[in-house]
């Protein structure tokens, strides 16, 4: 592995975006993601790109909206309260069927909260934090390598389906330094005949997000959006299974809490307890079917989160047997520790 390099998760996201061909990045300061703007401020001018620091999160997401409408691969990043401010823009971008990548390095909330890593943006990421019947494709990496790989993939998914894609990390992942291998560019290209590139030799393009006229009903537009979402649900679910073949107990966790759960599983296995990990990598689309199949063979399904219970709602929808589903979470920037998870699983009397 001689080609491995050491970077913070935030910096890896920046470099991966550049590898993916992103040349337009719009920033606004907020901890714990500030290394992304700092990295892009230096790197983007070197590759002929545009780094622009906006005057607010609202401004940054609307700059993304504009750059995307012009056909550019555009990205913004923020952390929890900053993502809340971006939600109006995200809803507009989804309504206009434009691609973009949004990075959320979650921190403790609600409100100003604190700057430690957290996972309490699950709702605002997966449930459509803004108004309307729309979806954002949400990917939740669990390592610096995965942050980099998934950032490259996020741009392709965004362009393929013409939707906003969110990389949902947290303050720990963003601040963590790990050796990783720089991802390769995918080599995929996407035609964007709708882009506002200046109507030379063709009719003007119009990107609409308002539909008031009878022949262009908003319901029809929404039904079209739903078709895209169904296609994504059918094709883009990503998850990881770890020691699930014989598992009587299934821990469901994503991102940082999945890493901690994995070490708890190592200890529990030494005690002979048959426990494994189901780690969703896409939070929307959620791997409902796959988790259902795993949970049917299990006695108990424990959801571990750095929140007081957000993803567990999707786990209940998947398992369809509430008595089987249990939850353990720490919040406000606190990490669940391996020992706490071990105690919880032991209590099932394995």
């Amino acid at each position: 592995m001689s080609d491995q390099i050491l970077m913070k998760g935030n910096e890896a996201v920046g470099e991966a975006a550049i590898i993916a061909g992103c040349r337009h990045y719009f920033a606004y300061p907020i901890t714990p993601q500030n290394e992304i703007p700092a990295y892009m401020a230096k790197r983007l001018p070197e590759v002929g790109g545009t780094f622009l620091q906006a005057e607010s999160e609202l401004a940054a997401i609307n700059m993304v909206f504009g750059a995307s409408a012009a056909g550019a691969r555009a990205m913004t990043s923020s952390s929890s309260p900053g993502i809340s401010l971006k939600q109006e823009g995200i809803s507009y971008i989804a309504g206009a069927e434009l691609p973009c990548v949004i990075v959320d390095m979650m921190r403790g909330g609600p409100g100003l909260g604190n700057i430690a890593g957290s996972q309490s943006d699950y709702f605002q990421a997966t449930r459509g934090g803004g108004n309307g019947d729309y979806r954002v494709l949400v990917i939740a990496p669990a390592s610096v390598q995965e942050l980099a790989d998934m950032t490259v993939k996020a741009f392709d998914l965004a362009d393929h389906y013409s939707i906003p894609v969110m990389i949902l990390g947290d303050g720990f992942l963003g601040q963590m330094s790990e050796p990783f291998t720089l991802p390769e560019p995918s080599g995929k290209t996407f035609d964007k005949p709708w882009a506002l590139t200046g109507a030379k030799g063709r009719k003007p393009n119009i990107i609409a997000s308002m539909r008031l006229t009878p022949e262009d009903l908003l319901e029809k537009h929404n039904l079209e959006l739903q078709k895209t979402y169904q296609e994504i649900e059918a094709n883009e679910v990503m998850y990881e299974s770890y020691l699930l073949d014989d598992a009587e107990y299934v821990i469901v966790a994503y991102g940082t809490s999945a890493r901690i759960s994995r070490s708890a599983i190592g200890e529990l296995r030494k005690e002979g307890i048959k426990v494994g990990l189901f780690r969703p990598l896409t939070l929307w689309p959620y791997p409902y079917k796959e988790l259902k199949a795993v949970s049917d063979r299990a006695k108990k399904v424990l959801t571990v989160e750095m929140s007081l219970g957000q993803m567990v709602e999707d786990v209940r929808l998947a398992v369809q047997n509430d008595s089987k589903v249990d939850f353990y979470g720490r919040t406000g920037g606190m990490l669940p520790v391996s020992e706490e998870i071990i105690r919880k699983v032991r209590s099932y009397g394995g």
């Binding site: 920033a27 300061p29 500030n34 703007p37 700092a38 401020a41 230096k42 001018p45 620091q53």
Partner: peptide, 28 residues
């Protein structure tokens, strides 16, 4: 500058000031 978040440029950062989002070098 935005000092609390670790020195990012603001609308009141003066010309020539180095911040993490207004880096200084041969070209800037």
């Amino acid at each position: 500058a935005y000092m609390n978040t670790g020195v990012q440029k603001s609308g009141l950062t003066p010309y020539g000031a180095r911040t993490t989002t207004s880096p200084a070098g041969n070209n800037l």
